[in-house]
Design a binder for these strands. Structure first.
Length: 487
RNA sequence: GGUUCCUUGGUCAAGCGGUUAAGACGCCGCCCUCUCACGGCGGAAACAGGGGUUCGAUUCCCCUAGGAACUGCCA
């Protein structure tokens, strides 16, 4: 298999990974793995200004918890290293390649200072400025360039793009895209600090690392022609391009850290499961052949056909993510659910109750773990509630009937020793049958008394089993008192 | 402003010339039920507009409109 697919995820270490980046990484991973190819991680830290301490670790951690294990990377040499651009720069690779371009006339030294560049800037409309470099330094003679270099004048190296003609590149999803060369700016390849720009390092690295499929967000679609010209200038075969549709927020703006959109880690902190997030974002911009939505990572690898990636942007729908997280929770093994839920349970319940049973009650009722609190708070302490809660039209109960029922049933419950759900249900079932009333007629007041809540994660008898005899009786008496009865 | 891309229900989306235009989330209703939830059943809700091409356009082409991205010595 000499034609093995190689994709790469090439983030800048600038903080947490937001969802858009993670989705790119996921697709890059899936495209490679679907074909049994390699997925590499390359750190693009050519911007020392934006570099954030510890960000590389965040990237490792995020990829690992998302399950997107890379085959090669800074911590996993595959023979194409280094995998960190600042380290690659020390080898002189970028300058070396830039000079090749200069020799070919495809790039040139530029000594223009900030002031001159500023003067080229023109305002187009309300504050928006554009700048197309005027190729001023392209006119410098070889001798002039040598002289300035020798004198130590700061310089950058720019790509030389002709003013005539067009450039075309091919994208697997978007097809052929052609632009006028005159529209293309002579972008900077090597910055004055000697670092390559993203644009240049990206092309050099993708080529030298044998990346076969360049997969990235389609915000790069408009600069792709410039990259294409670089490949052509070097005489390199261009990679397969796959530009991904953007993920946006509800106002249809691109998701970005800058705008404060949730990162993967934010979502985990909000109580989402990594596998649910991964599953959800896989479906943002791609759909499987079969009509299905829940996929494990392995199933995604199996199913992922990049030709089914869509071209239009997708809104990140928090509500649906929650639903999907809930699906994962419901399908989860009860033991594992309990392990994950336990901290949330303990945060609310400090008394000695059967937390496993409570976890089981709550498993089908929550979408994310933080939802647990509102469902179980009454176990810890009977909340303040209004006597009006005893009135329920469908149950045909009122404060009066409730009082009567509670008074009737109290002695039975006091005499009862077995407080298991089944035994209690049988006991009360007897009362219901004897009185010829509906279940709810007695269960509603009981559940209300015992929980003080409109809705609970279990029925009256289930709650009493958990609360135990003493606490149940105490709460029922409190209910009777609240309804004006004597205990 | 320029360039490029995008346009099926509120959202994710199937569709790839002929369909009653799937499905999912959300919403509404019913059933189940010791409340709620789960589960089951059902409902409202879409091809941006205009021209072509064609026997026939949601599907192909053009125009218009709307949206987005890019337009940094950031990626």
């Amino acid at each position: 298999m000499s034609e093995t697919i190689r994709t790469r995820y090439a983030p800048s270490p600038t903080g947490r990974m937001h969802v858009g980046n993670l989705r790119s990484a996921l697709y890059e991973f899936l495209i490679a793995k679907h074909e049994g190819g390699a997925f590499l991680l390359r750190i693009e830290d050519t911007d020392q200004e934006r570099y954030v301490e510890g960000a590389v670790d965040i990237i490792y951690r995020t990829l690992e918890t998302a399950g997107l294990l890379h085959d090669e990377g800074p911590d996993k040499d595959g023979g194409f290293g280094p995998y960190v651009q600042s380290e690659r720069m020390k080898t002189g690779i970028y300058m070396e390649y830039a000079k090749k371009l200069v020799e070919k006339g495809e790039a040139y030294y530029c000594f223009c200072d900030k002031e001159r560049l500023e003067s080229l800037r023109t305002e187009v409309v309300e504050g928006k400025e554009i700048m197309l470099y005027d190729k001023h330094c392209l006119g410098l003679s070889r001798a002039e360039v040598e002289e300035k270099l020798a004198a130590g004048v700061p310089f950058v190296i720019r790509q030389n793009i002709p003013n005539e003609g067009t450039t075309t590149f091919h994208d697997e999803l978007y097809g052929d895209i052609t632009v006028e060369n005159a529209e293309l700016d002579d972008m900077i390849l090597i910055k004055s600090d000697g670092y390559p720009t993203y644009n240049f390092a990206n092309v050099v690295d993708d080529h030298t690392m044998n990346i076969t499929h360049v997969v990235r967000g389609n915000e790069y679609l408009s600069s792709a022609p410039k990259y294409q010209r670089l490949y052509d200038a070097f005489g390199w075969e261009s990679p397969v391009y796959i530009h991904l549709p953007l993920i946006t927020d509800e106002t249809h703006k691109k998701l970005s850290k800058r705008s404060g959109h949730s990162s993967f880690e934010d979502l985990l902190e909000q109580g989402f499961l990594p596998e649910a997030v991964v599953n959800y974002i896989a479906l943002l911009g791609w759909s499987p052949e079969e009509n299905r939505e829940i996929f494990t990572l392995d199933e995604l690898i199996e199913q992922f056909d990049y030709r089914r990636i869509s071209k239009s942007p997708a809104v990140f729908d928090y509500t649906k993510l929650k639903w999907m997280n809930g699906e994962y929770l419901k399908a989860m093994d009860p033991e594992r659910f309990f392990e994950l839920a336990e901290p949330y349970l303990r945060a609310v319940i400090h008394r000695d109750l059967d937390l496993k049973k409570i976890a089981a009650m709550v498993q089908t009722r929550i979408e994310i773990f933080p939802d647990i609190a509102e469902h179980i708070d009454f176990f810890e302490a009977l909340p303040e509630y209004d006597a009006a809660m005893y009135t329920h039209k469908k149950m045909k109960t009122t404060a009066e009937t409730s009082l009567a029922v509670l008074c009737d049933v109290l002695p039975l419950l006091e005499a009862q020793e077995d407080y298991s759900n089944d035994a209690l249900y049988a006991l009360l079932g007897g009362y219901v049958a004897e009185k010829g009333v509906k279940n709810g007629y007695v269960m509603w007041p009981l559940r209300t008394a015992v929980s003080g809540k409109q809705m609970t994660p279990g029925g009256a008898t289930e709650l009493m089993e958990l609360l135990g005899k003493d606490e149940s009786i105490a709460r029922i008496k409190a209910g009777i008192a609240k309804l004006g009865g004597n205990v």
